[in-house]
Design a protein around this nucleic acid. Structure first.
Lengths: 180, 180
DNA sequence: AATTTATGTCAGCCTTATTGACATATTTTA
DNA sequence: TAAAATATGTCAATAAGGCTGACATAAATT
């Protein structure tokens, strides 16, 4: 008995804080901020029987209409099997339509329908409101600071992707001249 | 045939951007930033057979040693059944120990072990490095701005909780005078 | 003609969450 | 003290959203 070593390991009673210059408060803030940020659309999605995965797909299809399945997989960094179910549901429910690629007919270009556009906006609105409220007190410069911080948090090899989505104005492929 | 209405809904070809003053780029940045932010610890956790859920539990137990199961559920906003499995694994693996509450013996106070403290630090470090890198170019004032922005993104009814975790210095319950 | 590519789909598995029901120990209350 | 409430644990079933592997098809490329 006497030579049993450390049967119950000692509980540590000092709160973790700032060791090695680690800033835990920002880590936590980021966690809480993102959780609440996603909770707004989550509530709306529930009424549609959709989840966060549907939201992401719908968002990027709206953001870059005509993107292909492969491009979408690249942005979302998930497998095609994971995308398949979600995408199918969005297509079946009439929020997204698939159009064979004009150049390469193997590709499926993804477009939102009017309903899909509307839902995407409805989902973005509360998030935008939350961000606006958080930025309300900030000057234009300060807002720029926040944006640069977020951008710097992203893996550098993915920043290009983001720029493409955010900045690129669609090459005028003909605006809404779909079928009648 | 001629009177079939809108068989295939029209694909919308205009990219969604800035409607109604909605800032989509920050919405997207937040998504990408958080994804990459969590990817760092996720990689480490994999080696332990743990997931993001374990990380969150371990983090807050380290942050506030002695917190009870109920308090932890409150912070994480999950059900006790969800917590149970994850917590059990962390306890079984020796990262957390449960101590009956001194006042109320129904309660289980949760404490990290030395190993648990170490793992929490190992997980926080890459996140801290990423944040540091993102804040590198910013002045002290600008860093404050970023922190305030994140805080403002959190539901106001939860901000108190955060303050408690982040600011409160543990009431000196005796530092590490556990068993020998 | 053979190969590669883009996509779809089937089947099975994992993690993290959920709800509902019930058990146990302990504290509080009537 | 007996009854009720509380803190926690646990069992079972379910769901969402990921994963891997395997295979099919159509179209493009070599």
């Amino acid at each position: 008995m006497a030579d049993r070593i450390q049967t119950t390991p000692r509980p540590i009673r000092t709160p973790l804080s700032g060791e090695d210059g680690i800033d835990l408060s920002i880590i936590e803030l980021f966690f809480f901020a993102y959780r609440d940020f996603t909770s707004d659309p989550d509530q709306i999605l529930e009424a549609y029987g959709f989840g966060r995965a549907h939201h992401r797909v719908l968002h990027f299809v709206n953001r870059k209409p005509g993107l292909t399945v492969a491009e979408l997989l690249d942005v979302l960094q998930i497998t095609k099997q994971s995308l398949a179910r979600v995408l199918k549901q969005l297509v079946d429910a009439g929020y997204i339509i698939q159009v064979p690629g004009p150049r390469d007919r193997r590709q499926r270009e993804l477009y939102p329908t009017q309903t899909g556009r509307q839902l995407a906006l409805d989902l973005a609105r509360p998030q935008s409101r939350r961000i606006d409220a958080a930025l309300k007190a900030l000057s234009a410069d300060e807002r720029q600071t926040v944006e640069e911080f977020l951008k710097a948090m992203v893996n550098s090899d993915l920043r290009q992707q983001i720029d493409q989505i955010s900045d690129r104005r669609q090459d005028a492929r003909g605006l809404n001249e779909g079928e009648g």
